[in-house]
Amino acid sequence: MSFLQMFSLLASGAGYTVLVTVACIATAVVSGLLVALLGRLRIKPLNRVLAVYTYIFRGIPVLVLLFIVFFGLPGIGLSVPPLVSMMLSLGLIAGAYLAEVFRGALDAVDESEIMAAEAMGMSRSQILFAIEVPQMLRFSVPGMLNEFTTVLKYSPFAYTVGIPDIMKQALALASTTLRGLEIYLAIGLLYFAIYQLMLALMKAVERRFSVPGFKRL
């Protein structure tokens, strides 16, 4: 096998890795926001349900949940495609962690600004989307970066459900070439490069939306 062939295999694997990572991050952000915002309604029974939800999803290993979804659910008549399985396991678990990040950031929004918005006659939802969410997202950047990194690092589990990501390509290459050492070293660097790319992207987004002097009080 030529170097070029190997390179193109790993490149296509990288595409799937990015796809899995982005899909899981999207799931995490949406579910995390949902949990954090629902918690904001301060409905006691609902909050109890949300607490149990986050506790379970933060307590179960990603791989175990992935196996429940992908290998277990078909046993009760629910067959879930591989990418969706990743989103329902890795995505929701990361979402449960993100919900905590968002919750803390929402609590950091200045009460007096909310009161000023109320005094202006803004509705609950207007205040939420014009004041609280924009501030909360800015406070959440470090926490989000941590969680997104975690998603990327757990994305190789996708190979266990048959997604041809970097890891799956590496396994195939290692078994045909018998040069596992070089290949795993190479993909280690490849993952690190993707991580650095993600870091740079997040920094750029953070800069784009940065507000001078705006920080957690």
Binding site: S112, M115, E118, A119, G121, P134, F214
Partner: peptide, 19 residues
């Protein structure tokens, strides 16, 4: 809300939206 829209309110601590 309609009532509040007719009353301007200025706070001791300014309460400007920091973002």
């Amino acid at each position: 809300r309609a009532l509040r829209q007719q009353i301007g309110f200025v706070f001791q601590q300014f309460a400007l939206y920091r973002h």
